[in-house]
Design a protein around this nucleic acid. Structure first.
Lengths: 326, 326
DNA sequence: TTGTAAGCGTTATCAC
DNA sequence: GTGATAACGCTTACAA
């Protein structure tokens, strides 16, 4: 493969001049530039990015640490983040953590050695002390000291869900979901605002019968057995807001198994957007996050990183996605 | 950040010795090694991977070009591929093509400049002439000259689907799906064997009424309008095999809209595994690909790449995933 | 405007 | 066993 020396030699100039042409930096006489460009074309020369990274100590790569790419919402977010970065000349390194702190730590170390330019972090683990704060970092949905974050408007999501249930005449209302706790430790998350917005609104409308389940979920997941048991003491519930679509699905299944009709007897609202690729049955009513806007906000924060932004947060609006369950 | 020179200076030796210690290459006296290791520990020195890539002209990064990470099957495959590579010390660069030839070409160029070690290719476009064949490449489901590939056993998938329909008494059988054509050009794909295995088996069992729809799909997708029209001439169909779950969903919806019961009146089988995260309605009966095994096969082929393997292919078994539609 | 040369942080080749 | 030193391919002073 041709290198910068080859180009310089054939163009009859020094390598610095070639470099100037490539980078459009400094002065180069028009004739010289054209000559160099011609040679570059002929050799179909492309600068070696590793060498460039070497001098710059940067490599135009952004790492994205997230639990996995299998869950629909993550897969979508990942897709849009990649598109955004691509448009701005950055590449994406995919770091699935499977929610394991251990794997996150290994990746965090690796990022240093690989001189990755920036990091997008989506985790429920407390990785605070492993974070290299001199790197641009943007977190999604989680608070870390001096790390700007993007979140969808979780509080408003709770408000919307509450209003919908109230509007549909629900009187005995339940919330189910924990506040996104990590593997080993608790971490501060914006997700807990779903609950807060929901409860606040119910109270504002003087709903008195509220069941607030803080059952610790794993991966926002609850099994049918668990929920059957959790529901046992509350036979009169007529409206449920779930912290995720995944939980909502379980909830609906259990309700049906108990002979309840959804939405006639009990209304159920999930969170994430009710996207399940081509559903054959009921479509869940859900609070919808917008992965494309989220991706855009993350990219902006990350690539125009400014120390002053360290405590900035960007909140992306949510909306209710109509389905068949509430 | 400490570098190899710092370590050498503090350990009172030359950088070559430090390098030997780091890489466990060549002879180093035990005492010296221990001294160096101590300093490395103290400085928490980690070699700069960019510099290593510079000398090696390799960077331990594997690029994965695929349409997107939003579709369930792709998201799963991506997940398992990342896990496999991680276990072997490689990082994954995610390259969403959105099926656009143009974006694939840009990525293919970039891979050269970044000296990516290897490439996993999942595309319906004919990128043959943009491929740098000196790089280890593994393709999924597509044939390119001198590029080994991994595919699930598409032929057997067709056989299984046929047998299931026959076994359930279907007499008037339809296949729907094209043979995975790209944006601009046709490309040879293993996916076409789904059709072949299916038809072969029907013929073997002397089924005479076969409707073979080769309607060109985009992204394995067919709209309800399109399929309504396609079905029109064949009111007696009682069994349908679809090239993907996505198509199967549309098919089932149209059938139901026409007053047909599934599976009582018409049996439908899809392809990919019937995974739709927590389905509330019918679960589709489907031919299931195993993304974990596929990922493993890809990794093996890629990391133990051997020129002799250029024409190798690895076929991963499929099985039928029981659902409610056939 | 342009070229020389000094890095960037490693690995690998040779002498010693 | 070990230490200079020359690559690797580029960017960027600095000098001319």
């Amino acid at each position: 493969m041709a290198n910068i020396k080859d180009v310089a030699r054939l163009a009859g100039c020094g390598i610095a001049t070639v470099s100037r042409v490539i980078n459009k930096s400094g002065y180069v006489k028009k004739e010289t530039r054209e000559k160099v460009e011609k040679i570059i074309e002929e050799l179909s020369y492309q600068p070696n990015e590793i060498a460039r990274s070497m001098t710059r100590q940067k490599n135009h790569i952004v790492a994205f640490i997230l639990p996995n790419s299998k869950h629909l919402f993550f897969g979508e977010l990942l897709y849009h983040v990649e598109e955004e970065l691509f448009d701005y000349g950055y590449k994406l390194m995919l770091c699935n953590s499977s929610e394991k702190l251990e794997k996150e730590i290994i990746y965090l170390e690796m990022l240093k050695n690989n001189r990755v330019d920036a990091l997008i972090l989506l985790t429920n683990n407390d990785v605070e002390k492993y974070l290299n704060k001199s790197l641009p970092i943007v977190s999604f949905d989680r608070y870390f000291d001096d790390v700007p974050f993007v979140a969808s408007d979780n509080y408003q999501g709770g408000v919307l869900a509450a209003k919908r249930l109230i509007q549909h005449g629900c009187k005995n209302i339940m919330f189910i979901g924990d506040d996104a706790q990590g593997e080993h430790t608790q971490v501060n998350t914006d997700v807990s605002k779903r609950r807060i917005g929901f409860i606040d609104t119910l109270e504002k409308y003087h709903i008195r019968n509220i069941v607030n389940l803080e059952y610790p979920l794993k991966n926002y997941f609850v099994s049918e057995e668990q929920f059957t048991e959790l529901l046992q003491p509350y036979p009169n519930i007529d409206g449920i807001f779930c912290i995720s679509d995944s939980v909502a699905f379980t909830v609906i299944k259990v309700l049906k198994a108990k002979g309840k009709r959804v939405p006639e007897d009990v209304k159920v609202i999930g969170y994430d957007g009710g996207r399940t690729f081509n559903n054959l049955g009921q479509k869940i009513t859900s609070i919808k996050q917008d992965p494309e806007k989220i991706a855009k906000a993350i990219r902006e924060l990350l690539l125009h990183f400014d120390k002053k932004d360290k405590n900035r947060s960007v909140i992306i609006p949510v909306e209710i996605s109509d389905g068949d369950t509430a």
